[in-house]
Simulated scan of single mutants.
Amino acid sequence: MSKNYSINMFKPGLKVIIFKEPCIIKSSFFVKPGKGQAFSRLKFKSLLSGKIVETTFKSTDRLEKAEIKDLKAIYLYNNHSFWYFMDNTNFNEIIVSKDLLKNTRFWLIPQCKCVLTIWKKEVISVSVDNFVNLTVIKTSPSIKKNSINNSIKLAILNTGISVKVPYFIKNNDLIKVDTRTSKYVSRIK
C-alpha cells in the first residue's frame, strides 16, 4: 500500500501527517468546480494537541500516511507522576506521564480496559470507554427543603474528579459518568 494519499482517498477516520504531526480526518468534502482545479476541504483533529482545524487541499496535493498503532491495554496503577499500563498481547508494562494523560487520568480505575495510541514508538494518547462507573467519596448531604431549588450538587469521585450530581446521590453511591463530557449519567444500584 502507498505511503501517500491523494485527495480522492481522503475519508473520515483516515490517519495522516498534516503540518508534521499525526492527525485523524473528521470530515472530507470533495469539490470539482466547473472551472479550475478540483480541491478537497478537510476537517481534521491533531492527535497530539487535540485541536480541530479546517483546511483546503488541491487535487495535486498528497498527504503522508501516519504510522499510528492502537494498542489494547489494561490500566494497572499510578504513582501520581506516571501511570502504568499492561499491553494485552505481550504483557509488557507501558509507562505514561501525567502530562500526557491530562484529564483522562480521572477516568482510569485499576483493571479498566483502554487503548494506547502510539506514534514513533511513543504513546501520544490514551482512550477510555465513553462511560465509567465511579464511587462517590464526598458530597454534601441532601436537605429536603432545598431539593426544589438545588436539584444538583458537587460530588468528589474516587479518582479525584468533581462532577455535578442530583441531590439524592450520597457518599459511597456508585454512579455512571460520561467521560467525554464529565457529566453524571445515572446511579448504579
Rank of each mutant, 00 (worst) to 15 (best):
F131I: 15
T55S: 15
L116P: 00
I156W: 06
K20L: 14
S125W: 04
V132G: 04
I25H: 08
L157C: 05
V128Q: 06
I152P: 00
V165T: 03
S186I: 02
K65M: 09
K11G: 03
L116E: 00
I52S: 13
T104S: 11
K176N: 13
N103P: 06
V16Q: 02
D99A: 13
S162E: 15
I137M: 02
I25R: 08
T159I: 03
F57S: 08
P110G: 01
N92D: 15
I169H: 00
V96K: 04
Y5E: 04
T117V: 07
L42I: 15
N90V: 08
D99K: 14
F39R: 13
L154R: 10
N79C: 01
D61Y: 04
S97L: 05
V31K: 15
H80F: 10
F29R: 13
S40K: 13
N130H: 11
V31N: 13
L134H: 03
F57V: 09
V53T: 15
L101P: 08
D61W: 03
K20Q: 15
S46H: 09
M1E: 11
L174H: 06
N4C: 09
C112H: 02
I148Q: 11
V16D: 03
A38G: 14
R180K: 14
L116V: 01
I68P: 01
K102Y: 09
K176D: 05
I175S: 01
Y77S: 10
D129M: 10
R180F: 08
K35V: 12
S28H: 04
D87A: 07
L100T: 10
E67F: 08
K176S: 12
N79E: 02
F82E: 12
I7T: 06
K176G: 06
S162A: 14
L42M: 09
I24R: 08
K102L: 11
L108A: 01
S6M: 06
Q37W: 09
L108S: 01
K11R: 12
S6G: 10
P22G: 12
I175G: 00
W83V: 03
R62K: 13
I156E: 14
L108T: 01
I143A: 06
P22E: 14
A155L: 00
C112P: 00
L101N: 07
E67I: 08
C23N: 14
F91G: 05
K72T: 06
D99L: 11
L76D: 05
W107D: 04
S142L: 08
I74E: 12
D173Q: 03
V126Y: 02
C112G: 04
W83E: 04
G50K: 05
N103I: 08
T56S: 12
M86N: 09
M9V: 06
I109P: 01
K164W: 05
K189N: 12
S49E: 05
V177L: 10
N149I: 14
K183C: 11
A66P: 03
N171A: 11
V115N: 05
D61E: 09
K120V: 04
I7H: 02
T55C: 13
K153I: 00
F10M: 15
N130C: 07
T56E: 15
C23L: 09
I18G: 02
Y184P: 02
G13W: 03
D129S: 15
K20N: 15
I188D: 00
Q111G: 01
Y84S: 10
N8V: 11
E93K: 14
I137N: 00
